[in-house]
Design a binder for these strands. Structure first.
Lengths: 379, 379
DNA sequence: CTGAAAGCGCTTACAG
DNA sequence: CTGAAAGCGCTTACAG
């Protein structure tokens, strides 16, 4: 924290102390006919309190400008029925005092934008920005704001979600909560899970089903002569993921036994590590299905490091259809999700639940989105 | 919009009609002592109005449960001083009616989380998720929510930003507004621009300066024998970008003349197109600086398509330090931004302006962040 | 053109 | 354990 170019820049640490900086003075500053001298100095600030510590209200501005608060409203919102002179006077008083209307006061009477909470795991995983982009597009079109909650940045997931529940009119995303807990945290809120772990999600859900595309992928590998298929799977050792099951089943239908290799995560590094295992344990593997595109990227790199040529020696297939797959070398064959379909469905569902055109908070409405097998260079 | 698995699923189009679905009934439903039969049927909904069209308030719940609204508050917020029986009764009445507390009413008295508006260009461009991730991390740590505004999804940027201004306590990001317009839209709000086009931004700013790292990059190219350096620059033909100027100057200091090639955008495709131009016009080019990492990725592909080997025949350098650069082949040499530094600085600045520990909305506080030259395989 | 009144939905003291 | 009163900051009619 060096190089601030403004001589007035603060000295030392960050200006907040971890406490929530109240958007507005919480209370106990009961209306007191504009005596702006009562300033909370909890933050010991010696010189020039240019920005007010006490929250400035419409009444303060009115008092300073010598008008009623109704007139302040007129000036601030560029309504008519106010003389140009008065407007000027009010506006400059507002500027002077650093007045900013409370979104709560305003929202209470005007009814603000509906707001969607989007819960994701980690914006640094390219899957989530693509999803977020799609959700954002649909939400914006519907006139909803989106608050993003990235749970990688919180020590306390439960707290994050409880807080979020208070700020929004609906929730979408990767919740990963036991059904009972989900209900209690989001009591009454419309909730739509995306790709829920539970086949019977407690509320709304967008279900992702790779099985049909998996059949196409299996046939593709089979027709190109793959004999030793492997699945690099993010899962617990004894419990293959749904994706792995779909692959194993699809290969079995063609008379081939696919071997699962378990990795703990779904990053490039997991793909790297899992593939190294594979090269050691199943050196003649010639077709690799992976848990997702990132794992596939790691697999491709590990194979190259080992001197194997993709796809000639080993064919590699990812899942998700991330854009990055079209950029790498070789380009990635994948089971592609239609992110826009997913995002639109999720938003349609919450909006429907919130507006009452769909069953509502308690119901189990679902949308099913399927992957599409997309052949590129890696397989 | 097919495959909804719930038999109750709505028929036909999306449930909203483009109008803003009011988070709460706007008004004119003046308190009327709980006559819940008055339902707005604007959305012709024949059966089972499970979700209410009229907004249910704390008074409705109180009336239904036969208690005062204070008691409803106690039950909903798990406060004590209420008998278990009453709590149960209230909770189930709330459930029955589909009651959800108004965040405006609550916020007005409790003072909700401060909220940051983050304005970016396009979440589908990997630069922005990385930035957003950093901003989100710092904002979350400071107890601020983040509303994401992706201006790619709006027909009307001006409208988007005006709306945003009403919802948040501070704004950060890529505004790209003339100073006067910026001031008028965000009247009084703390604003921090990131990498502002104007060297004299009207309010707070995080300035990004590639020049020092550019000197390192230039020397690197020079020492490896580059004779014909080229800059693929996103800019208007006559007006090279700041980045291009920095590169051209740095090469000039070493006695070499770098030739700029202008492309209209900063995507992979722009890199592709610009590099094809280069191969035609300057076939002996042997060092390419690009406007950003995406352009560099396009350049590498175009060079490979033309049979040139990177870095042996042509060295390629990007700007930004995106994660994707570590994944592609060859890995990308780049001028890397410290995204966390940028995100933290931006958040510190707005938070400081909002809490008064920094000068405030009108001031021109700035933080300077520098790129770091990062050598990988492509150069 | 301007202001007094009423109300948005909620919570916080304060009485009982 | 429960309720009547007051207030959060704003806007919308309604008078003048």
């Amino acid at each position: 924290l060096t190089n601030w170019s403004d001589p007035l820049a603060w000295a030392g640490q960050s200006p907040y102390d971890g406490a929530v900086p109240a958007a507005e003075q919480p209370r106990n500053a009961r209306r007191q006919a504009a005596t702006p001298s009562r300033v909370a100095l909890s933050q010991a600030k010696p010189d020039k309190p240019r920005s007010p510590a006490r929250h400035i209200t419409i009444n303060d501005v009115g008092a300073a400008a010598g008008v009623s608060r109704q007139t302040v409203t007129r000036a601030m919102n560029a309504m008519d029925g106010i003389s140009a002179t008065t407007r000027e006077r009010v506006l400059s008083a507002a500027q002077e005092l650093g007045y900013r209307p409370s979104r709560f006061g305003r929202g209470l009477v005007k009814g603000g934008h509906a707001t969607l909470g989007l819960v994701i795991e980690d914006l640094a995983n390219p899957y989530y920005p693509e999803l977020a982009s799609a959700v954002l597009g649909s939400a914006t079109a519907a006139g909803w704001n989106v608050i993003l909650a990235d749970d990688r940045h919180t020590p306390d997931r439960h707290q994050l979600l409880s807080d979020l529940a208070l700020q929004v009119d609906g929730v979408v995303g990767y919740l990963k909560l036991p059904p009972a807990k989900q209900r209690s945290i989001f009591r009454g809120l419309p909730v739509v899970e995306i790709d829920p772990p539970d086949p019977q999600p407690p509320q709304g859900a967008v279900m992702l089903d790779p099985a049909p595309a998996m059949v196409d992928a299996a046939r593709h590998l089979f027709e190109r002569g793959v004999q030793r298929p492997v699945m690099i799977d993010r899962s617990a050792p004894g419990r293959p993921s749904r994706r792995a099951c779909a692959f194993i089943n699809a290969m079995a239908a063609l008379g081939l036994r696919a071997v699962p290799i378990h990795v703990p995560g779904d990053s490039i590094d997991d793909g790297l590590a899992g593939t190294r295992h594979m090269l050691r344990d199943i050196p003649d593997a010639d077709g690799v299905m992976t848990f997702n595109d990132l794992v596939a990227l790691g697999a491709i790199r590990a194979l190259r490091d080992a001197g194997r040529v993709v796809p000639d020696d080993v064919r590699v297939i990812g899942i998700d259809g991330l854009r990055i797959g079209a950029v790498v070398t070789p380009t990635l064959t994948t089971l592609a999700l239609d992110m826009h379909d997913v995002g639109r469905a999720a938003v349609d569902l919450v909006v429907g639940m919130a507006t009452g055109s769909l069953p509502g908070a308690g119901a189990r409405v679902q949308y099913h989105s399927q992957h599409q097998f997309l052949v590129r260079e890696s397989a």
